[in-house]
């Protein structure tokens, strides 16, 4: 049984606009039988934080192209992507890439 977990979930680069413009979310994930990973976190975000147009954030079971996921200031590719097992107090950032100038 995984204990409840506190995370800081952040959105940036415009991704925050799908979350009422709020960039920083202090999040407590409930207890659940399996450990929390990014795959579960995305589902949880879709159900609990994402208010409108989920397809602009999630496609299939992962984030849409153009969103970079950072776990404790590192590219999620270095951390196991969807399978990364979340730790208490982790910082997860979803950042939309910018193209303007």
């Amino acid at each position: 049984m995984a204990a409840p977990m506190s995370l800081v979930v952040e959105f940036g680069g415009g991704a925050e606009l799908l979350f009422d413009g709020i960039k920083k979310h202090q999040v407590t994930l409930p207890c659940q039988p399996e450990p929390w990973d990014i795959r579960n976190l995305l589902k949880w975000i879709k159900q609990n934080l994402l208010k409108e147009r989920p397809e602009l954030f999630i496609q299939g079971d992962t984030v849409r192209p153009g969103i970079l996921v950072l776990i404790n200031d590192a590219d999620w590719e270095l951390m196991g992507e969807l399978d990364y097992k979340l730790q208490n107090q982790d910082n997860v950032v979803f950042i939309s890439t910018l193209h303007g100038g």
Binding site: G12, G13, I95, L98, H99, G100, G101
Partner: peptide
């Protein structure tokens, strides 16, 4: 380099 709104990368 890129920028939008109040952010840059």
């Amino acid at each position: 380099a890129s920028a939008l709104r109040l952010e840059g990368q």
